Computed example of a mutant assay.
Amino acid sequence: MEILNASDAACKSEHQFISEHREKLPGVIETVLASMEDETCFAHIGDEPIHFSTSVKVMVDKFREVLFPGYFSKKKLDAANLAYCMGQNISELHDILSEQIVHVMRHDCLRYGQACTDCERRGQEMALAVIEKVPGVRQALAEDVRGAYDGDPAAKSHDEVIFSYPGLFAITVYRIAHILHQLQIPQLPRIMSEHAHSLTGIDIHPGARIGRRFVIDHGTGIVIGETSIIGNNVRIYQNVTIGALSLPPGSGKSLKGKKRHPTIEDDVIVYSGATILGGQTTIGRGSVIGGNVWITESIPADTKVFIETPRLIYRYKERENEYSI
Rank of each mutant, 00 (worst) to 15 (best):
D144G: 09
V173F: 01
A274F: 08
G278Q: 05
T220Y: 08
D38T: 06
A83K: 14
H94E: 15
E23S: 10
Q114G: 10
D78M: 11
M192R: 03
A274L: 10
F163G: 00
E143W: 10
A79L: 13
I204Y: 01
I18E: 12
M192I: 04
D150A: 15
Q139F: 11
I185D: 09
G284Q: 00
P310V: 05
D38I: 06
S157M: 02
E99T: 11
G290P: 02
D302S: 13
Y271G: 09
I185T: 08
R209A: 14
H261P: 04
V268D: 00
T200Y: 09
F306W: 12
T282D: 02
R311V: 14
T220R: 00
G250C: 05
H15D: 10
S287M: 09
R209G: 13
I230H: 07
P49Q: 07
G257L: 04
E65K: 10
R138V: 11
G257W: 01
D152G: 11
Q139P: 00
I269L: 13
G257I: 03
H158R: 13
I283Q: 03
L183C: 01
F52H: 11
D152R: 03
E265W: 07
L180M: 07
A142V: 06
T241R: 03
S13T: 13
G290E: 06
G231N: 04
R121D: 12
F169Q: 00
M86W: 05
S164C: 12
M192H: 01
S7Q: 13
A148L: 11
D95R: 14
Y314F: 14
G221N: 06
G87M: 10
I179K: 05
F169E: 02
G136P: 10
C11P: 00
G278V: 02
E39Y: 12
L141D: 06
F214R: 06
T200D: 09
L25P: 00
P49T: 11
T200G: 11
C41Q: 15
K256C: 06
W294E: 08
R111E: 14
F169T: 04
F306R: 10
L247D: 00
A129R: 08
E20D: 15
E14Q: 11
A148G: 08
V288L: 06
S7F: 11
V102Y: 04
A142D: 14
G201K: 04
T275E: 10
T263G: 03
S287Q: 10
P26H: 06
V66P: 09
I325K: 14
V240C: 08
T31F: 00
I242S: 06
K76I: 14
N321G: 00
Y271I: 08
V102M: 09
F68A: 04
I276H: 02
Q182N: 13
I45A: 00
E2K: 14
V137Y: 03
R315A: 15
A154R: 04
K62F: 02
A154L: 03
